[in-house]
Design a protein around this nucleic acid. Structure first.
Length: 437
RNA sequence: GCGGUCAUAGCUCAGUUGGUUAGAGCACAAGAUUGUGGAUCUUGGGGUCGCGGGUUCGAGUCCCGUUGGCCGCCCCA
């Protein structure tokens, strides 16, 4: 039993685990590139104030934070958004618009671990800065969908719930609520799906009972599940702000439809996201069966860059976490098993043969082929077994007979046939084999 | 932070009302096997029974504590 254990909630990646992780990263990166997003990275350790400024002191409970040797209050990053806002804010005027950036990075949160949640996890983050209209949301939701579809997931496996915090703000304003009450109601809406009427308890305790006609109006709004229903509702209210939001909704859903992605997206005003900094459209991706926690989440945060010391700069972004996503892929049988197989395995008779083999082994490796060989002398039978188990397609046989004749026997491990090739032509033969297959 | 549950070999697990030196399968390694395939047989390495204390002639087994895993709640940037 090992004396030292991994810290709770932290993860170790043995080769098979890392292969799966890399698979996620590879396809995410590839997909982001096809959408024209540029990759960036940033420090894991940040000033604690970067997170305090955004969300208040109570966030500190879930931060890995400490005082460094220089007396600075620092924290391991719990998310990317503040960091990327700082990066973009610092050079905002020099960056070509639109700014489309993505990253794949590890984050840390000091919380109780659970299925799909640990104290460290990876996220794919994508953000667009400098675009105030729904064009940014169009691009990001399309990217989000493709980041999941790239793995073979379909609209049978997941969907994106789309909502709008500004719509709620304007709607509740039209109903006569002030800002504090509006936030209280949004909190209740966030919990309504889970708790039903109990979700309004917190609001009632702070502001007193909600007038029945107000509650009805709110629950009515919550029932809206389509654009036509939304249009019908808003027409009865009128108002410039709400009309503006409706135009954005039409544009966003129209574009997603034109991309053929409408089947992935559902209008669901019950999504408001707990995060205080969202200002417009918000969206979350879930598995269709509803068994897992959210796969991804994001939205518009037009005020955050400025709040963190940059210029006023509209922004939209989302993140996909690696843990829940990997669970979904495994459930659907879409997580491949990765074998790290060499192209060529060398079967070597003895010490003299080994010396001869080394020259070819190194030359083949330098030419880009994956070549492996047994480190110790082994009986031929064992070596052929090892060659088969390794998954190699070719075996190069360096035996006493071959050495004497100046040849190498090359065996096709799948076809089970072999040819003798002069030593000087081994590299050429291997190249022909792999370029032909 | 709260509640439930579990912890024996690298993995999956047996282990009798508390009783000799804690077992199996898989995996790993060696041999049978000095020139041809995922087989078979034989053998081997590997354990402070999570950790600490208590009860007892005797604890993997019972009791208390603790650490860690899993599940749920809270939270979820």
């Amino acid at each position: 039993m090992a004396t030292f254990q991994t810290l709770p909630g932290f993860r170790e990646f043995y080769p098979e685990d890392l292969a799966r992780r890399n698979h996620l990263f590879r396809l995410w990166r590839q997909t982001a590139n096809t959408f024209g997003f540029a990759e960036y990275d940033a420090p894991v350790l940040e000033p604690l104030d970067l997170y305090k400024a955004k969300s208040g002191d109570e966030i500190e409970n879930q931060l890995f934070s400490f005082t460094d040797k220089g007396g600075r209050e620092v924290a391991l990053r719990p998310e990317m958004t503040p960091t990327v806002c700082r990066l973009v804010g610092a050079k905002a005027n020099a960056l070509k618009r639109p700014i489309k950036w993505f990253s794949i990075a590890e984050f840390y949160r000091y919380e109780r671990m659970q299925k799909g949640r640990g104290r460290c996890f990876f996220q794919f983050n994508a953000d667009i800065f400098g675009e105030p209209g729904p064009e940014a949301e169009i691009e990001l939701i399309a990217l989000l969908v493709q980041c999941l579809c790239a793995f073979g997931l379909t609209d049978q496996d997941f969907y994106v719930r789309l909502s709008d915090r500004n719509l709620w703000f304007y709607y509740l304003e039209a109903l006569g609520l002030d800002e504090a009450r509006t936030r209280g109601v949004l909190g209740a809406i966030d919990r309504y799906e889970k708790y039903g009427d109990d979700a309004f308890k917190g609001y009632t305790e702070t502001f007193g009972p909600l007038a029945p006609e107000l509650k009805t109006a709110i629950l009515d709004f919550l029932q809206i599940k389509s654009l036509p229903a939304l249009e019908a509702k808003l027409q009865t209210l009128g108002g410039e702000k709400l009309a503006g939001r409706l135009a954005d909704w039409r544009k966003l859903l129209g574009a997603l439809d034109a991309m053929g992605l409408a089947r992935f997206v559902e209008v669901d005003l019950g999504v408001v996201r707990g995060l205080a900094y969202y200002t417009g459209f918000v969206f979350e991706a879930f598995d269709r069966k509803g068994e897992l926690r959210a796969l991804a989440g994001g939205g518009r945060y037009d005020d955050l860059v400025q709040k963190l010391g940059g210029p006023a700069l509209p922004a939209v972004g989302f993140a996909i976490g690696d843990m829940t996503f990997a669970l979904l892929l495994e459930q659907r049988g879409l997580m491949p098993t990765f074998v790290q197989a060499p192209d060529v395995y060398c079967v070597i008779g003895g010490e003299a043969e080994r010396q001869a083999a080394f020259g070819d082994i190194h030359a083949l490796r330098a030419a880009g082929y994956r070549v492996d060989y047994p480190m110790k002398e082994l009986a031929f039978g064992k070596q052929f077994k090892a060659a088969t188990e390794s998954g190699a397609k070719l075996a190069l046989i360096y035996g006493g007979d071959e050495l004497a004749k100046g040849v190498v026997k090359i065996r096709d491990l799948n076809q089970r046939n072999e040819v003798e090739v002069p030593r000087a032509q081994v590299a050429a033969h291997v190249r022909d084999f792999f370029s032909g297959s």
